[in-house]
Design a protein around this nucleic acid. Structure first.
Lengths: 148, 148
DNA sequence: CCACCCCGCTAACTTTTGCAAGCACCCCGC
DNA sequence: GCGGGGTGCTTGCAAAAGTTAGCGGGGTGG
């Protein structure tokens, strides 16, 4: 399960530290972690938590993203694939209700497409014991969508 | 030390799980973590490690980056310019026509809200949950050139 | 030579993560 | 009634993360 490449991450961190002319203790102090622990991270014998990683990134003035990519936690190309529902949910400019509407429509589109492409899905993983979610007409976006 | 906003992260995770129609056990199993642990994460009483976060993101099919942003580990502003329309346009699972529909609705929502809330558009920089962290302010020349 | 300050690392310890087992509740078939 | 499976939550416990104290080593100057 080691999705984390701790070794590479450690080397990368040490490189960055050296290149920033920082001693182990200096960086550890700046990042708010203990010196020996940073040492162990750099040598790959410890998997730093998300928080520590973030603090190290800050102290090193490198983007946290860079670190995550190096750690193998962020796929470089994954960054382009921000999922639509997640993006919608994070958007502060629309209401929760509106988010739900958008997501519903989005899901119904996907379902529609899947049905068109694969009419015979044997053993449907549909666990919904309830009814089929409204495929179209995702309840009333009328209020806003109509105004468009 | 809590640079992590565990509570928000938990809520977000729960939202995502529900929105994906998954039970706690299902997601836990898919992500390779234990059911009770996921429960605790969702209620904000545990800070998941970087690895766990990654596995959950994978199982939920959302970008790990989204999760990090939600956890307060990546600055949202830095990257939120990806925004909903961009995410929609990049999605390969729906047709171009469907994309247009979604974006239309999204835009109409925004227009409606803007009209209702703020007739005088004095520019609303979005920073809702943005925490006032950064105690010592090492100060980065954040040249976040908005590509919007 | 010796104190002094830095470097990185090892050792023992405390705190937290993360898990297997079990609880209480609800719904459905027998 | 009872059994079985579904949901989420609580409880100890092993295994990690992350800490403070201390080690050997290398300058530098007194």
């Amino acid at each position: 399960m080691g999705a984390l490449k701790v070794g590479e991450l450690g080397e990368f961190l040490r490189e960055q530290r050296r290149s920033a002319q920082l001693s182990l203790r200096q960086l550890a102090d700046a990042a708010g972690v203990s010196n020996p622990y940073l040492s162990q991270i750099e040598r790959g014998l410890r998997k730093p938590s998300a928080e520590i990683l973030q603090q190290l990134a800050k102290a090193l003035r490198i983007s946290a993203e860079t670190l995550y990519v190096q750690a193998g936690m962020l796929d470089a190309r994954e960054r382009q694939e921000l999922e639509v529902p997640a993006a919608i949910l994070m958007d502060p400019s629309i209401s929760e209700r509106q988010k739900q509407v958008l997501i519903q429509i989005y899901e119904s589109f996907r379902k529609e497409n899947a049905a068109a492409a694969d009419p015979a899905p044997t053993g449907g993983p549909r666990n919904g014991p309830g009814g089929p979610d409204d495929p179209k007409a995702p309840d009333g976006p009328d209020d806003a969508a109509a105004t468009a």
